[in-house]
Structure formats: structure tokens, C-alpha cells
Amino acid sequence: QEPLTASMLASAPLQEQKQMLGERLYPLIHAMHPALAGKITGMLLEIDNSELLHMLESPESLHTKVEEAVAVLQAHQAKDISPK
């Protein structure tokens, strides 16, 4: 797969753009967190596209954001489990 560029993305309809970004992000996130990959990718897709493109180019920034998403998910799930 050739790297996704801003111009490639810009030429796609908005809905397709998120799909394209998700298809590229998912395998990278899956390598880090297989069990949560779908959820984390969904959370990241809410970030604006320019930042997502940057993350595709910078493994470090992607890694930071994925860890943040895992922390948010764990805190969220902890809230669900905690006795009310």
C-alpha cells in the first residue's frame, strides 16, 4: 500500500476519508492492542483528519494517542464495573 497523503484523502468524500484512515490505522493499533483495536480506532477516528494523517506518519505520536485511548477506556470500564 502506498502511504496515504493529504491530497489522496482530500479527493475522497468525507465519509470515505474516515474509512480510509480507519483502514490504515486499524492494523497499526491491532499490533499494539489486538483486543481493543476496533474500539481504539473508533475513538481515534473522532480526531480531525490532519492529526490522524500526522499519526500515520509518526509511529511515536500514534503510540502516545493509543495509550491515551486505552487509559480512557480502562477508566470508563472501571466506572461501569464499580458498585453504584
Binding site: G22, T41, G42, M43, K65, A69, L73
Partner: peptide, 18 residues
Amino acid sequence: RKSSLNPEAKEFVPGVKY
């Protein structure tokens, strides 16, 4: 630092229309 990520976000499934 409060994260802006949404834990309720829709799950992404590769190959499925997002």
C-alpha cells in the same frame, strides 16, 4: 490531563463501512 477521547465512540471494523 483530561483526555478529549470519547470511550463511547463507535467501534471501527476493517472492511465494514464506517
